[in-house]
Design a protein around this nucleic acid. Sequence first.
DNA 1: ACCTCTATCTTGACACTGGAAAGATAACAG
DNA 2: CTGTTATCTTTCCAGTGTCAAGATAGAGGT
Lengths: 191, 191
Amino acid sequence: MTEKPYHHGDLRSALLAAAEAELADKGIEAFSLRSVAKRAGVSHAAPAHHFGDTQGLLTALAAEGYRLFLAAQGQREAKAAPDARAQLVAAGLGYIDFAAQRPALFRLLFGSNRTDYGNADLSSAANAAYAHLADQVFAAGGRSVAEEAAVWAMAHGLADLMAAGRLKPIAAFQPADRDAMLAAIIARALP
Amino acid sequence: MTEKPYHHGDLRSALLAAAEAELADKGIEAFSLRSVAKRAGVSHAAPAHHFGDTQGLLTALAAEGYRLFLAAQGQREAKAAPDARAQLVAAGLGYIDFAAQRPALFRLLFGSNRTDYGNADLSSAANAAYAHLADQVFAAGGRSVAEEAAVWAMAHGLADLMAAGRLKPIAAFQPADRDAMLAAIIARALP
DNA sequence: ACCTCTATCTTGACACTGGAAAGATAACAG
DNA sequence: CTGTTATCTTTCCAGTGTCAAGATAGAGGT
């Protein structure tokens, strides 16, 4: 019976998990560090040692978020045809999956100023996500910043509007129909 | 010499202006009601009488924001060719203009949960913006929710990425070139 | 003119927040 | 077993949003 040892053991991970739960529950604007500490069953000042301040915690969470974000795209890609265009559409669907399943985390990545992109870990995680997009656009024949922007904006726009709950008529479709519809829309932006 | 009359005269408008300045300076996540009151030269509890609470103030600001948002689209439309497709592209450019010029306000409209869409004024302002999009898509031949979503997502994606500063290579072009590039991208999403 | 009524604004209080400082506890290296 | 260090708690402070009570002034009726 590990009641409540003074030393948690893996508080860092526990705090990250608690922070994501807090984010999902209350959103970034009502995010409370003290509440995160309570969720992890620890004093309000405990996070400071692992993350410094709130920005540090959110920065670490965002870095994890970018890795999950890439993983969501990878899951779709694994099920798609191997040609470059199909892979790019699949990545777009994964992009949207992530935003729909974790809207608050998605907004932390793309719509928050409480993360520090000077941080090396976050910076490299974000760059990896961007590089993956750029590679795929190149593989599909895109050769300009405009081609990149077109694909990115289409996927991002769908994802952000879904996360905001503004595409309910589309979200209401059966998953298969919904995916087909979204895939067709994404395809319009392809090179 | 109107030194400091006990009654402000037009505190409501002054508070809205101060709130937008506060939003632009600190972003939605560091938005402080007391700081807004200070900007307007008034006690920290003065806003309560006009807006109730912080959510009330942000809701009123968002309603104003949607009207400015539509006005930004109207400005572009007035300079564009009268055919439906050109008007739709122009509206998209106005959409992006607004996001680029007032990124914090743009995020209040599309990425905040601190506004109350149950409020009649905000709700009707937001609906007016949506109706304008739907009308334009219909006029351009769009007849499905997918057509609507495609155009909306493309404009919104470009706007949100610009507001987040993630399309710097495109933002760096001369205005005319930039607009032409964005117009070409938006055109991909048209019916 | 005066006098009430009501809207507007201020003051003071409360619980909550993030962060700093200092102390307590336990793991670990020797 | 002991000194050292990492981890966590306690205590404190300034700042925040909201509520309640009081102060001020404009508006309308007589």
